[in-house]
Amino acid sequence: MNISALRGRVAAVVMSFGLMSAPACAGEVRAAVAANFTEPMARIVELFQKESGHTVKVSLGSTGKFYSQIANGAPFDVLVAADEKTPQRLEAEGLAVDGSRFVYAMGKLALWSAQPGLVDAKGAVLGKGAYNKLAIGDPKLVPYGMAAKEAMEKMSVWSAVRGKLVTGENITQTFQFAATGNADLAFVALSQITKDGKATEGSSWIVPAHLYNPIRQSAVQLSAAKDKAATQAFLAFLKGGKAVAIIRSFGYELP
């Protein structure tokens, strides 16, 4: 191959890279997202990317872990948390942008089993003890785990279930313990067992809201955000009607 042909090939390769990358104005948002919001976020991101041309890179995990990572310089632009406390704390410490915080969803707690008929309409199964293990999110780390603990304390079954408790480090793992059948019961986010407004298989009980403190899931823009325009566009989209419709379809409410 002679030099000019080689040069032509190199040019073609360079050009194809140029074509692959998005238009010049398109930005990138790096979002840290609480595990319970995995599925709605996937839909929201898909729609947002299509409409705005920006790309969103989602990292999933527990809110507590994200706090530690952000406090230690993790490169995220937004935190979509499972609680209100963590974004507030980031704001107070100057790690998040003042005034950017808002509640994007009110989380709902559900008791779920992969077995049909195991969970009754009042959650009485908890006190009866006819199950092997009960999975909850670690109350120290997972807002839904804290809510589960509060609900069981109010129902006066907390001491009865303690011997059967297993804890997941995030709500996805908690759900997985029950989905694989290793735990008969699990307290999960209603969003995890809801698709398009309908409950998935198994049996479930939606825990009445008065049994636990409201799970005010909040999002916030982080001070370290690089692409501020794309980040703000994404947060605005998360507040908007299209996102809200998706969020509702997974069983969340809005404040």
Binding site: S62, G64, K65, Y67, S68, D138, K140, L141, E169
Partner: peptide, 8 residues
């Protein structure tokens, strides 16, 4: 250790 770190 992991739980302690995550719980700050």
């Amino acid at each position: 250790i992991y739980s302690h770190v995550e719980a700050m």
